[in-house]
Amino acid sequence: MIRFTTLTRAALAATCALPFAAGAALAEYPERPITAIVPFPAGGSTDLMGRAAAQEFTRILGVDMPVTNVGGGAGTVGTAQIARARADGYTIGVIPAAPLINQPHMRDTPYSIDDFDYICKLFHSPQALALSPESEFSSLAEVVDYARENPGELTYGSPGPGSLPHLAMEVFLDETGVEIEHVPFQGDGPGVTALMGNHIDMYMAIFSNVGQYELDAVAIFAEDRVDAAPDLPTSIEEGFETTASWWGGIFAPAGLPDDVRVTLEDACAQVAESDDFQETLARFGSFAAYLDSDGVRAEVDEGSRVNGAILERVLD
């Protein structure tokens, strides 16, 4: 009898509190499903990361985590929705870096990087430069030397203006001081096709795509070689400084209650260590890459500063 009333009360409280959940610290967080917003359409790389992470969060936190895809505007629409959401821990975002560190420099976004509580960095995939099948270059240095002697003659493709591969290549061009023309495509599908058909000279791609499309990569922009392609030299080995990766993590609207934030941070660390999660990511050529709240915040700040400067130069 007593048990019954408690249950009923809890149910009532939960229901009534639902629309005003901000102050509802009645029960231990989390007590109902947590919505994970992915700011890209279903089926893309970010969506796959989000769904893999949601599965682990569900296991760890014991509540469902349905994924909602909010596509459009190069990720800005969904990211804005996350920033606008109630900061109660029941709406979190699985966001890749681009809508945070690139897009705010390209348009007026209704959010800035200060509008989020950074839970953790969770996944990354290094980027690699792939050459067209007819290309005669055999190393990154040869590409740079040729471009230095023939400025503006080579072309490189990217999955879109303001995408992480685009910015990575521009950072690299900035470092080396050479000129290679940018030809953006609408996603990797059309871009990789153009590369394989020799319509462009090279393509900056997330490493996972290099394996998937069996592209002819010349260097990987990372500190260390990756196990999946042990023969692929790194940009550092080739004597350059630029490293670049496609990465993202779990971010929430700013102002989470402390206990909620700690719970989410702990859960996120566990997700990153989970074997299942790492295995799923590995199938897509990506890796779990954990950084805690402060670490990822610093990376976002740094990325936004560097890419902001690059974009200012590229856009005008």
Partner: peptide, 16 residues
């Protein structure tokens, strides 16, 4: 999930 309160909330309200 459609926006706003759902059938599950309604059921809980009714049983509660």
């Amino acid at each position: 999930r459609p926006p706003g309160p759902g059938m599950d909330d309604l059921l809980r309200l009714m049983t509660g």
